[in-house]
Structure formats: C-alpha cells, structure tokens
C-alpha cells in the first residue's frame, strides 16, 4: 500500500513552559495508507482532534514531522501550508462551519474560489456535487433552512470539491441522526472505493469506528494500540 501521510515523533504542547502546560499529542508516529479509512478512537480529551489538526496542517507541531510523501510540512511557512490545504486536503468539521449567509451551493463552491475557478463555474460544479448527494432540491437554500443531515451533506460536498488526497473528518456524525450517519458512511466508502480517497477520521462513537479499515486508539495524547 502507498502511504499518503506519515507523522514522526509528533508532539503538540499547549501553554508551553507555564504551569498549565498540556501535552495534547505525545510522540505520535503513524502512517495513513492511501485508499483506506483510518479511524482514531479514544475518550474526549485524548488528543484526537489535535492530531487531526496537525495532520490537516491547521496547526504546527511543537516537535516532530508531518510528511506528505517525502515532504515535511511542519517547518514550512504558512503560505505553503495554506497552499497544501487548498490542493490536497478536505475537511469535515465537527461543527461543520457552514457560512449561514450563503446558500448550500455557495458554501460548497468556496474551496474552488481559492483555486481561481470562476464563481459561475465553481457553483455549477458545486451543484453537480450536491446533486450527487441527493441535495438537488436544496441547492439555493440557506444553511438555517436545511436539516442537520442536509447540512452535513453540504459539509461533505464542500470537503470533496478540491478533489483532495486525504479527507479529514472530526466526529463526522456529531450533529446528525443514525440514518444520516449511515448515508455518510455510504458516501465515504464509495469515494474510497472509486477514487482511492484516503480518509482519516476521529470519533468516540463505536458505530463510526466500525466504518474503518484500520483503527487507532489514543489516550492522554499517545497512540496506545
């Protein structure tokens, strides 16, 4: 199997040097295989979300490396890290973070705009992506007019717009019902099978963890098995 992302002796420390210092991630070395769903389990506060942020280049490690292929992104400037997020990574956030003033299509089109795709073209592609998720009747609805499951589908559609190498999903079933969660599983599995998408997700929900091809557990910032 091909490795998409690798971390080497990764540490993330908050409140460095002070009395409230916390090692959120401690000496984590993992490999995320291409075309697999890798799930990280563990209780709340075990460092799952921080590890996802490190792999997703949303924050810098205190020590260690994050390698995409052979390239270590941990020491690169924010400009290069931003470019990497734009071109290689898709995100499904726990809180979804949809922009309420925008419609479903406009939210989904956002990642294309920073790739310099013209707005009309981006919205056309976004509509196709949403329709493939059964959202063709909600394209011009604002976020507040969508159900929790529909919002999650918008979030999934947005995460796939830049054709990412890796999709990072933090508690992807947090704000949806069981049926919507199953739909999400179906969509992710299809993307993995068809496009060889790599998925790294974190959850403390056994149902979601069962979706994974490979499962890692974290406790107190460390991978325990």
């Amino acid at each position: 199997m091909t490795v998409t992302v690798r971390t080497e002796n990764l540490w993330k420390t908050y409140g460095g040097g002070g009395p409230h210092q916390v090692d959120a991630v401690r000496d984590v070395t993992i490999e995320i295989e291409r075309g697999e769903i890798t799930a990280i389990g563990g209780p709340s506060g075990s460092g799952k979300t921080t590890l996802l942020s490190l792999v997703g280049l949303l924050t810098r490690p205190t020590k260690g490396k994050v390698l995409y292929g052979d390239q270590d992104f941990s020491g690169l400037s924010e400009v290069f890290r931003t470019r990497a997020r734009r071109q290689r990574i898709g995100f499904i956030f726990q809180a979804q973070y949809l922009i309420p003033q925008l419609t479903a299509v406009e939210n989904v089109a956002l990642p294309m705009l920073c790739l310099d795709v013209p707005r009309s073209e981006a919205e056309k592609l976004a509509a196709i992506r949403l329709s493939s998720l059964g959202m063709n009747h909600r394209l011009d609805f604002r976020v507040a007019e969508l159900s929790g499951g529909e919002q999650q589908r918008v979030s999934i559609a947005r995460s796939l717009m830049n054709a990412p190498e890796i999709l990072i999903a933090d508690e992807p079933n947090a704000s949806i019902d069981e049926k919507s969660a199953e739909e999400l599983h179906f969509v992710l599995r299809e993307m993995v099978e068809r496009n060889k998408l790599t998925v790294l997700l974190a959850s403390h929900d056994a149902q979601v963890l069962n979706w994974a091809d490979r499962r890692l557990n974290m406790r107190d910032g460390k991978i325990v098995d």
């Binding site: 949303l58 931003t82 997020r85 995100f91 956030f93 973070y97 309420p100 790739l115 947005r158 830049n162």
Partner: peptide
C-alpha cells in the same frame, strides 16, 4: 464568534491572508 470562525474556515479551506 461568527466573523472569527468564518476567517478560520476560509483559512482552513486554503484562502490566503490576502484573499
């Protein structure tokens, strides 16, 4: 909160500071 999160989201999606 909303304005702050919006900027964070745009950055996460790959928008540059200049954008």
């Amino acid at each position: 909160e909303e304005a702050r999160r919006e900027v964070g989201l745009l950055k996460a999606l790959g928008f540059d500071t200049v954008d």
